[in-house]
Write a protein that binds this DNA or RNA. Structure first.
Length: 639
RNA sequence: GGGCACGUGGUGUAACUUGGAUAGCACGGCAGCUUGCGGAGCUGUUGGUUGCGGGUUCAAAUCCCGCCGUGCCCGCCA
C-alpha cells in the first residue's frame, strides 16, 4: 500500500499556502480587530488575467472593504505594502483592488522541476482518497447487441473516472453489471431459436444485434412473437431451465465480444455481476428483509398484490418527486418479478455490504493489461468484491428519477450515509445527426448505418493511417500502423471526454475524428515534438542538476512551469467533480503553452539556457504522459 | 400537472458548484509565418447585449425570482 505522506504538498498548493499566510499576517497586523473570518481566504484566490500583474491574486480587499466600509483599493494597497515575502514569493503589488503576488520564478522553477523529476510517474497523483474503497459501474450494456457510440461514452467516462480515483488513492473496483435476464436477451434468444444461425463470419455481438433488429421487425408483423418472448423472460429466470442455460451462453458470448471492443479502446474491469447470479443468490429477498419497514403490499386497488414504496414517504427527502403523477413505486410486481428499482436497490445493498450475497467468482478472461476480469458464477470461489464506502454509477441522465428513489430508500431504512455515497454520474445522451440512438429500432447498425463503437474505431484508424503514412517523421515504417492506432484512439477519446458529462452530444464523424485544434492528436503531437528535442539534445533526466536555473525568465518558460506545477490540484478537482474534461482542458493549456514556448524560446540553441530548457521540456513530457495516461491515451515519440 | 438537464460569436465548447480584473479555447472566414528544435504547429484579424425580463451586490455567464426554447423523465418496461 502506498504511503500517503508522499503526497503532502504539490508546488502550486505550497505557494498558495504561503500566499494565504502572508496575507493573513498582514491583515492581522493592519486591522487586527477586523472580522475577516467570514471570508474564506482560499476562495478569494485566482490567477491574474495577465502575467505582468503577478502570479497569484486575492480579492480579499473587497471583502474587507465591505466590513470596514472603505475603499478596496486603499486596503489592497496597504496589504500589498506590508505583506512579507515568503520562500517562493518575492513581492506583492496591488491593482484595481486586488492583491497580487509575484512568485520567484527561479526558486519556483527549481521546486517544480525537482518535484517532477523526483516523483516521475507519481507526479500529479494525490492522497485524498485515503484508500477508501469505491466501486464504479460502467457501461452495463445489454448483452444482445454491440456497443454503439453512446455506450462508448459511458464506458470511457467510467474507465477514466476510475483512473482518476485511483490517482487520488482510492481503492477502485471497476464493475460491469450484466442483465442477462431482461427483455433484450429474451428477444435475442427467440431469434437464436427461430431465425438465425451464427456462422462465425462476423463479430458475435454484431451478428446478435442484427438478429435482434430482425426479431423486432418480426414482432411488428406477428403479435404472437411478443407473447413468446414474454414467456421466455419468465423461463430465463427459472434456475436450471434449458432457456436460462442457453440465454446465459448467448449473453456470455456477447459479453466476450463486448470485451474485445473494450480492450481495443483500453477499457478494463475487475468484476462482472450477472443478474442471473443475483437471482440465484436470492439477493432480492434479503434486500426485502432489511427494508420491510418501508414496504407495503396492498391487498386491493391499483397495486394489489405488488410490493411498493409510497412516494409520500420519499418525497420529504426528495422534493423533486412532489407532484408526480403516481403515488407509489413498485418494487416487486404482483407476479413476483422485481422491477428495475427493486433490483438496483438490492444490488446496492450488496455493494455497501448491507446484505451478503455469497457470490462465487471465476476468472472470465485475462485482459491485455495483465489483470483478469472475474465474473459471478455458479461455481468458483468467494472473493472480496463489494463492501465499499462509495459507489459511482455511470448511468445516463434519463434515469435520474429511478436513481433518486433508489438512493433515498436507503435513508428511509436508516442508512443516510449510503444515500450520500451513491453518486449518480448522469451523463447526456449521444444522438446521431438528428435522430436518437434506438436499441429497439436498431438504427445504428447494419446496412450503411455504422454507428457501433467498433465502426468508429476502424473509421478513425483508417483516417489516422492515411495521415500517418504520409508523415516523414516516422522513422520506422513498420510502426506506422501502431502509431495510427494510438492517434485514432486519442482523437476519439479526447473528443468524447472534453465535453462536460451532463451535456448531450450530437455525434458527427467530423468532430469525432478531429485531429487538429482542441484534440487528442494535438496533445500527442506536442509530446512528440518535446521528445524529439530531448533526443537531439541527448538529454537524460540526471542532467537536471546541470541546468542554470537563473536562466528562467518570466516568459513562456515560466508560464509553462507554473502550469506544470498545478497537475495535482487539477487531478484532485477532476476527481472531486467526476469531470474528466477538467483534465482535457489542462492538457490543452499545457500543450498550447509549450507550443508558444517552443516558438519563442529555442532550446538546443538556447546557449546558457539550453540545459534548464531541456529540463523544462523533459518535465513537460512527464506531466503530459501522466495526465494522458489517466485519460487512457498513450503517447508516441514520433508521428 | 410535476420534475430534471441543457441554452455562451456562424459552429463545437470552457469558465457556473466557490460571484471578482478585458468571457478563454478550437473549428470556419480573412491576412501572414518553414534554407530555423517537427506546419497535426504558430502569429494577427474577424465575430459575443453569455436565451429573455426582473432582483441581490461595490461587482452577475455565475446567486435568487419569473418567463421562453430544446431534450428527457414521472410504467407492475429495463
Amino acid at each position: 500500500m502506498q504511503d500517503l505522506k508522499e503526497f503532502a504538498d504539490s508546488p502550486s498548493s505550497l505557494v498558495k499556502r504561503e500566499f494565504v499566510r502572508a496575507l493573513d499576517d498582514a491583515i492581522n497586523a493592519l486591522y487586527g480587530g477586523l472580522k475577516k473570518e467570514e471570508a474564506n481566504m482560499e476562495l478569494t484566490l485566482s490567477e491574474p488575467t495577465e502575467l505582468n500583474l503577478g502570479d497569484i491574486s486575492s480579492s480579499i480587499a473587497f471583502k474587507l472593504a465591505k466590513i470596514a466600509k472603505t475603499s478596496p483599493v486603499g486596503i489592497a494597497k496597504e496589504i500589498a505594502k506590508s505583506a512579507k515575502p515568503t520562500e517562493h514569493i518575492l513581492r506583492f503589488e496591488d491593482a484595481n483592488g486586488y492583491v497580487n503576488a509575484f512568485v520567484d520564478e527561479k526558486k519556483y522553477a527549481e521546486l517544480v522541476l525537482r518535484d517532477i523529476t523526483k516523483r516521475a510517474k507519481g507526479y500529479g497523483r494525490s492522497g485524498v482518497g485515503k484508500h477508501q474503497k469505491v466501486i464504479v459501474e460502467y457501461p452495463s450494456v445489454n448483452p444482445a447487441h454491440p456497443w454503439h457510440v453512446g455506450h462508448l461514452r459511458n464506458a470511457l467516462l467510467g474507465s477514466v473516472i476510475s483512473n482518476i480515483l485511483e490517482a487520488c488513492s482510492y481503492d477502485v473496483e471497476r464493475e460491469d453489471y450484466i442483465d442477462d435476464l431482461g427483455l433484450q436477451v429474451a428477444t435475442a434468444l427467440w431469434g437464436w431459436n427461430n431465425m438465425g444461425k451464427y456462422s462465425g463470419s462476423m463479430k458475435f455481438d454484431q451478428w446478435l444485434g442484427e438478429l435482434y433488429v430482425k426479431v423486432n421487425a418480426e414482432m411488428q408483423k406477428r403479435p404472437e412473437v411478443k407473447q413468446e418472448i414474454d414467456g421466455l423472460v419468465k423461463k430465463l429466470e427459472e434456475v436450471g431451465s434449458q432457456e436460462s442455460r442457453t440465454g446465459r451462453e448467448i449473453a456470455e458470448r456477447c459479453v466476450a465480444a463486448h470485451q474485445q471492443t473494450a480492450f481495443a479502446y483500453g477499457i478494463y474491469h475487475d468484476v462482472m455481476i450477472w443478474e442471473s447470479d443475483i437471482v440465484k443468490a436470492h439477493l432480492l429477498s434479503k434486500a426485502l428483509d432489511v427494508s420491510s419497514e418501508i414496504l407495503e403490499k396492498p391487498g386491493e386497488g391499483k397495486y394489489a398484490g405488488a410490493i411498493i414504496v409510497k412516494l409520500d414517504k420519499i418525497a420529504p427527502l426528495a422534493r423533486e418527486l412532489e407532484g408526480s403523477r403516481e403515488d407509489a413505486k413498485v418494487i416487486i410486481r404482483s407476479n413476483g418479478a422485481a422491477t428495475y428499482i427493486g433490483k438496483d436497490f438490492a444490488f446496492h445493498a450488496w455493494k455497501f455490504g448491507l446484505i451478503d450475497a455469497g457470490f462465487r467468482y471465476k476468472k472470465f478472461i485475462e485482459q491485455p493489461n495483465g489483470k483478469a476480469i472475474y465474473s459471478t458464477s455458479s461455481e468458483g470461489s468467494s472473493m472480496k468484491f463489494g463492501n465499499v464506502k462509495r459507489a459511482i454509477n455511470i448511468i445516463d441522465i434519463g434515469q435520474t428519477y429511478e436513481q433518486l428513489i433508489m438512493r433515498v430508500m436507503f435513508s428511509l431504512i436508516g442508512h443516510r450515509e449510503i444515500t450520500d455515497n451513491i453518486v449518480h454520474l448522469a451523463y447526456g445522451k449521444v444522438n446521431i445527426e438528428g435522430e436518437k440512438l434506438s436499441g429497439r429500432a436498431g438504427n445504428w447498425l447494419g446496412e450503411g448505418r455504422n454507428y457501433t463503437a467498433d465502426d468508429l474505431l476502424s473509421e478513425a484508424t483508417k483516417r489516422a493511417m492515411e495521415i500517418a503514412q504520409k508523415s516523414e517523421k516516422i522513422s520506422n515504417k513498420e510502426s506506422v500502423e501502431q502509431i495510427a492506432r494510438a492517434i485514432a484512439l486519442s482523437a476519439v477519446k479526447f473528443e468524447y471526454l472534453r465535453v462536460a458529462p451532463e451535456k448531450e452530444i450530437v455525434f458527427s464523424w467530423n468532430t469525432a475524428l478531429n485531429f487538429e485544434g482542441n484534440s487528442g492528436p494535438y496533445v500527442m503531437y506536442t509530446y512528440a515534438r518535446a521528445r524529439k528535442i530531448l533526443a537531439r539534445g541527448n538529454f537524460t533526466s540526471q542532467d537536471l542538476s546541470q541546468g542554470d536555473i537563473s536562466e528562467v525568465t518570466r516568459g513562456y518558460d515560466f508560464a509553462l512551469i507554473k502550469k506544470m506545477g498545478e497537475a495535482q490540484e487539477v487531478v484532485e478537482k477532476a476527481c472531486a467533480e467526476s469531470r474528466p474534461n477538467v483534465l482535457t482542458d489542462y492538457l490543452l493549456d499545457l500543450s498550447s503553452l509549450f507550443s508558444k514556448f517552443y516558438e519563442s524560446m529555442p532550446v538546443l540553441k538556447g546557449e546558457r539556457a539550453r540545459e534548464v530548457r531541456l529540463a523544462i521540456v523533459f518535465a513537460l513530457t512527464v506531466v503530459l504522459e501522466n495526465s494522458l495516461s489517466l485519460l487512457g491515451i498513450s503517447t508516441v515519440s514520433e508521428m
